[in-house]
Amino acid sequence: MNNTTTIPGIQKGYYPLKILIIILLLLGLGLFPFISGNRFYISLITEMMIYGLLAMSLDVLLGYTGALSFMHNAYLGISAYVVGLFLIHISPTSLWLACFTGIIFTSLVALPVGWVQVRTGGLAFALLTLAFGMMFHTIVWKWYGVTGGDDGLMGMPNPDISLFGWNLGNTGNPVTIYLFTLIIVTICFFLTRRIINSPFGAVLEAIRENEDRASFVGINVRMYKLLGWMLACILASIAGALFILYKGYIGPSTMSAFAGAGVLMMVLLGGLGSLWGAFVGAAMFIYIQDYISTMSEHWEIYLGLVVIFLVLFLPTGFVGLGEHLKRFRKG
């Protein structure tokens, strides 16, 4: 306590167990395609990682700034379309430039939307996300000449992934895109964790806790809410770039309100405010979706039941499971 540079609640030093688990998990994921070779699972896990990144970006928005977005998938979609259009029409081989364009374009769209949204709050903010999201969905759906409308974006080339002159493989190869996704998502995860634990992250938390008081300690609430919104949209746009490279296709349904609710469910399944919980939630959601849809066309009903069960009996999501069990054992 005499040490005036420590902050209570933040332990210093490393936790060997935690680090070991992370290394084993990453190693396991990294080696998986070489051990299994099962194309189906390689694709499934790729999708889980991409949606995990999207869910994590929503967790940043909801869990750290307290802003609810019903259609965060719109920003994945916009980015995916832009990256796809860039590769189709401008340069089929400039992968990095395409991704960069997608992220910048999405940010440019998200900025004015966020500017409007942070001037409202709570439910009005949430409803505006829905309004903007549906607007984007309709534009993509109806603008046949550019987006392909209902048919989606066709004729995506498969660019090579090259870094500093090294060719790391082709995005058409499921194993390559799997590893590429793993690397990018891992980097995004650790960067986001870093940001959340920074002085900037502390400001977001204060705003989430009590917006009014935050402004009365001298925080420009609107500006920081907008920055939090931009962070969430940029992460979603990175997920969008990965999505189109992995699928080689995107259709308007990816940007629908239904898909938006799905992303929200992923976050709630995993539990708010932990970042990694979003990945667990996304993995569970996609697995359930995939597993049940092989047995019944109406997989949404079963998913709905799972979500209702979780909301009623495990409102803190998967992340809160440990706490729940502890309390249960104590009686």
Partner: peptide, 29 residues
Amino acid sequence: FENLSVFENLRIARQAKDGGSLRIFSSKQ
């Protein structure tokens, strides 16, 4: 700030005064 620690309640107010809130890659410490 109900769910933040007493220390963090005061620390965030101090941080807002002294600046540094735009540092996104450094730690609170």
